[in-house]
Design a binder for these strands. Structure first.
Lengths: 230, 230
DNA sequence: ATTGTCAGATTGACTGACGATCGTGTAGAA
DNA sequence: TTCTACACGATCGTCAGTCAATCTGACAAT
């Protein structure tokens, strides 16, 4: 853990990339919205080269889709895509949990349980932001203990991709209690050093979250907002 | 399936991107090799803007790593990373198989079995290229029938990432017979419409391939080639 | 031998420019 | 009035050139 002390001046490109990503996942840009590079340029005060490179990265992450000769658009999340994302999230999170059960240190296990207890003691009055932040910490600890950089990167992408849906599903009344109960099963499996059971518990947890989110998505907004291109 | 007939002139950027990716996965560039954008420019006859955007995409895929102020390098695959990639591949392929068992049409099931029979009837004298091509077709059919664009994209990335290892493990004498037998278990599970068994069979297949590849990697080249930077 | 300095090479970023392409609105014809 | 064709604007794709910051390696000085 000899963390390098050298400071790296964050390149302009990375600032644009992170700013744009944050703006998209926080909903400051509506899905389907057109983002001409001109407006991105003077929004971030950067040149076209920088903006275009940043857009390429977000395109690879799936957050924006670039139509030829028309430019970048905020990606639209259809119910089918959402279901697919949850499927992938399920197996990746299951793998992360399984790896955590295998490789995590005692300190990391204790830390994960601490985060869970933080979540469990929140009343139902907690704000969406708080809940998302706690779940974020949960994932951070989980992925750190899983010792697998690839599953961490891919899961990060997927969590960014369906941030809006997670916010809605977390705000569902009564969902918090189920989340706490499902995660307890994960924690118990981890403490019993049972990777297989951890795998199953994690995947099932995501499946439940997907059911809630997709049900909300189907009933609450039967007709999506922006135009599905082509 | 009304595929649009209109041809879109592939942008220069995409040509550079695909050419560079092909050059890396085919081993025309050694791992750890430095790729100054100057040489990429007159190698592809493109301007710096185009090359840099293409490099961004490959960076997001993990095929190249860009060191600040030093430029892009062909990514180096450590044994630990290889093991992590195989872990992720295992669950993603398992999910793809499970989805295939759930959603594929009868035609797709027959097609998958045809590809498998093609692989099974090859004698041990088949060339690496042929075997890789057949496995490629197997994956294409599998992913098409899985009805999940995300698992397809991520699996594609991972397969590109460890192409070299796959080539070595496929060339291992006797491995072909085991591969055929393991895939038969997958096919049988699919034909029995048993998603859970398909999941397990796929994951185990990848695990076996990982064991072979990592064993070869450990014994055949105990000290990697290029310098691990920093 | 260690340190300091300098030149060359390379990246990061910006700017201006040009043609190609898409969408749209308008003018003209039926 | 309705429909078609064309022109126009907006935007993208690409390029070339410039400048500053940084790294590398060699060479000189202590």
């Amino acid at each position: 853990m000899s963390e390098s002390l050298r400071i790296v001046p964050q390149p302009m490109r990375r600032q644009v990339e992170e700013g744009l990503r944050a703006a998209i996942v926080n909903g400051r840009f509506a899905p389907g919205e057109h983002l001409p590079d001109r407006v991105l340029c003077d929004l971030f005060g950067a040149s076209r080269s920088v903006v275009r490179e940043a857009v390429r990265l977000l395109e690879a992450e799936g957050l924006v889709t670039v139509q030829p000769n028309r430019g970048p658009f905020v990606a639209h999340l259809s119910p089918e895509e959402a279901a697919q994302i949850y499927d992938v999230r399920g197996v990746l999170e299951a793998l992360a949990g399984e790896s955590f059960a295998r490789h995590a240190t005692d300190g990391e296990r204790a830390e994960l349980r601490a985060v869970w207890e933080d979540l469990a003691t929140r009343g139902p009055g907690a704000s969406r932001e708080d809940l998302l932040a706690i779940k974020r910490r949960f994932y951070d600890v989980l992925l750190a203990g899983a010792r697998n950089a690839y599953v961490a990167r891919m899961l990060d992408q997927l969590l960014n991709r369906n941030m809006q849906l997670r916010a809605t599903s977390l705000s569902d009344p009564g969902r918090l209690a189920w989340t706490v109960k499902e995660l307890k099963r994960v924690l118990d499996a981890i403490d019993r050093r049972d990777p297989d059971e951890t795998f199953i518990a994690c995947r099932e947890h995501v499946q439940r979250a997907a059911d809630v989110a997709l049900r909300l998505l189907a009933t609450h907004s039967p007709s999506p907002d922006a135009e599905p291109p082509s």
